[in-house]
């Protein structure tokens, strides 16, 4: 039963992709739909992305974080002769910034992944870097691919895009040149997808959104690579359209073909869906409470801001009230004269 459910989930995500592809084909066939997509929907998608993204960030920002809950993986700052680890257990802001940078740029916590196996009935632990490697490769490639696309959105083209593109294609395989990031992006996606499909534990806990996110980005990549290498399109028409967007003078693109509309539709679904999906980790990583807090619990007192005021009665106040009775009963007291508790309170 569980197996069947898992297969249906995987199948559904493929069907969702196919549905978007068919929708794109239909849009490509109809002139009116093409106009609506490129002149109206494009702006709606971008607005949804922008507003949705900021909304999610603000929602997270106003969520209370009552306790200091940094996860630590190193020696805390304590006595001067104990060597502290400021990156793995940050004490100040600088350490937090360093730790966040390690997380965002190098995926530090994935690097720590380990695997456990039973060998002859005994658990054996080892390091497991595959997810870190392919995850990092995928993310870096995706960033570079997005940056390369700036050539369609800026005129004159931003200078670094040319340098980036020539560096990316310096192997000069084929014409147009094969980009290394395109290859790495697809390789990363294949790993991330197959990992969820082939590893039973991961298949068990994978949801529709997990598969769909990967397949959606893969569809964007496959349609994009096809347009570059197998079914070339007229880039002039495309850049005229994209520049129309960014100058708020949208134009209807000329003949661009079905593949381009598929690429466009996949990208639009991705962008509009991003703020409401797990892909929002793009912004969320900055707001992970277990990572972005300094571990200074022992040095500073952090009080939960909405704690109800607690009526505290100190021992001194107690002794003040019952001193005479205590002395009478022979119970030892800390001070003999009255009024000392008052004096202490003032201090």
């Amino acid at each position: 039963m569980q197996e069947v459910k898992q297969r249906i989930t995987i199948l559904t995500s493929f069907l969702a992709i196919a549905a978007i592809a068919m929708l794109a084909a239909a849009i490509a066939a109809s002139k009116t739909a093409g106009i609506v997509l490129t002149m109206v929907v494009a702006y709606i998608v971008f607005a949804v992305f922008l507003i949705g993204f900021v909304y999610r960030i603000i929602r997270w920002a106003i969520s209370p974080v009552p306790f200091r809950i940094p996860t630590t993986c190193g020696q805390e700052k304590s006595l001067p002769w104990i060597k502290a680890n400021p990156l793995e257990c940050p004490f100040g802001n600088l350490g937090v910034i360093g730790r966040m940078a390690g997380e965002i740029f190098l995926f530090r916590s994935l690097f720590r992944n380990s695997k456990a196996e039973l060998v002859n009935g005994r658990p054996v632990y080892g390091s497991s870097k595959w997810l870190w490697f392919f995850g990092l490769m995928f993310h870096v490639s995706l960033l570079l691919v997005i940056l390369r696309h700036l050539r369609f959105f800026t005129e004159p083209v931003v200078p670094f895009v040319g340098a980036l593109s020539s560096l990316d294609g310096f192997l000069e395989i084929g014409i147009p040149t094969l980009y290394m990031t395109d290859t790495a992006l697809v390789a990363g996606l294949i790993f991330l997808f197959m990992r969820r499909v082939l590893v039973p534990q991961l298949r068990y806990l994978s949801l529709f959104t997990d598969y769909f996110a990967l397949l959606l980005i893969a569809s964007v990549a496959v349609t994009g690579i096809s347009m570059r290498h197998f079914f070339p399109v007229d880039l002039n028409e495309i850049k005229t359209m994209t520049m129309g967007w960014v100058t708020f003078t949208p134009v209807v693109p000329g003949k661009t073909g079905i593949l381009f509309y598929m690429h466009l539709c996949f990208v639009m679904v991705l962008i509009a869906w991003l703020p409401f999906s797990k892909l929002m980790h793009m912004g969320g990583i900055f707001l992970s409470p277990t990572r972005n807090m300094a571990n200074n619990n022992r040095a500073r007192r952090h009080v939960n801001p909405w704690n109800a005021p607690v009526r505290v009665r100190t021992y001194k106040e107690y002794e003040e009230e019952f001193r005479e009775q205590m002395i009478e009963a022979g119970i030892p007291v800390e001070s003999t004269g009255p009024g000392e508790a008052e004096k202490d309170k003032q201090d």
Binding site: F49, L50, I57, F153, T154, E155, V246, G283
Partner: peptide, 23 residues
């Protein structure tokens, strides 16, 4: 953070100063 995000993703809109390039 939000300012950096918005400035970053709207980069193409303000980079060309709104001038429509001639194809």
């Amino acid at each position: 953070g939000i300012a950096i995000f918005i400035i970053g993703v709207t980069f193409p809109f303000w980079y060309g100063k709104g001038e429509s390039p001639v194809p």
